[in-house]
Amino acid sequence: MPSSGFFSNKLRAVRAPKRERRKEARPGELLDAALDLFVEKGFAATRSEEVAARAGVSKGTLFLYFPSKEELFKAVISENLSGRFAQWNAQFEAFEGSTPDMLRYCMRIWWESVGSTKVSGITKLMLSEGRNFPELAEFYQQEFVLPAHELLRRILRRGVERGEFAPIDIDLAIYTVLAPMVFLMLTQHSACFGAKGNEAPDPEKYLALQIETLLNGLCAQPPAAGRALP
């Protein structure tokens, strides 16, 4: 009969991977808890011990992975926003359809992966608190805002170069695309919407209308019959 030591060793071998998986999972659990609390309470009002408690770990464990609340917030941005650009840029390179279809696809994917999720609350947080935390605002700009602008520039430039979009000031036109997207994110996290008679717009219908309105202004069109060219 095997000795009790055999069973003890075997039990340790079975349990070890579970402990290792738990250790590996902790950063992700902490980032999820931090995102929840930052969106619910804002950056200033969220305490590190609250994040640790929601993740089910000690405050000391939190600081093993993220030495400050600021570093934790930066990690939340990197994990949920800036980390997506490699995939989004690869999709841009691989897209074979028209640029209007690319823009439709871009805005739809943005809504599904960011706008309709709790991650969209980060935009509201930065708009409300960024001035008080300039280092975090700069990080958000460098890691998310500027890459988003550059991707939109590439899309709009593609449309102009292919003759699908009229010649436009691309640096200004990116805000024409961004404005309805930012508005829609804010409606998800604002007390101004929700009362009877002032409900937030249906996201899918709203985006569909905004996209087609935008494209009707961007697409190169032949002059209407009888209308003089400028």
Rank of each mutant, 00 (worst) to 15 (best):
S116K: 15
S116N: 12
T117S: 11
K118P: 07
V119N: 00
S120H: 01
S120M: 06
S120R: 06
G121F: 01
G121E: 05
G121W: 05
I122D: 02
I122H: 01
I122G: 00
T123W: 12
K124N: 01
M126H: 10
L127K: 07
S128H: 11
G130L: 06
R131D: 13
R131L: 09
F133C: 10
F133G: 00
E138V: 09
Y140M: 02
Y140Q: 02
Q141D: 12
Q142C: 11
E143Q: 13
V145A: 11
V145E: 09
A148Q: 11
A148F: 13
H149W: 04
H149F: 11
H149G: 05
E150T: 12
L151G: 03
L151E: 05
L151T: 03
L151K: 02
L151W: 10
L152D: 03
L152C: 10
L152R: 06
L152G: 03
L152W: 02
R153K: 15
L156H: 04
R157F: 02
R158A: 02
R158S: 01
G159F: 00
V160N: 01
V160Y: 01
R162H: 06
R162Q: 11
R162K: 15
G163Q: 03
E164N: 03
E164D: 02
A166N: 01
A166G: 04
A166W: 00
A166S: 12
Y175A: 10
Y175K: 08
A179L: 11
A179N: 13
A179I: 08
P180Y: 10
P180S: 11
V182N: 10
V182Q: 08
F183D: 08
F183P: 02
L184V: 08
T187G: 07
T187Q: 07
Q188R: 14
H189E: 09
H189K: 07
A191S: 13
A191K: 14
A191W: 08
C192W: 14
C192S: 14
G194Q: 10
G194S: 09
G194W: 06
A195D: 13
G197E: 08
N198C: 15
A200N: 06
P201V: 05
D202L: 11
D202R: 09
D202M: 02
D202A: 15
P203T: 07
E204W: 14
Y206N: 08
L207G: 01
L209V: 13
Q210F: 09
I211Y: 00
I211R: 00
I211C: 05
E212Y: 07
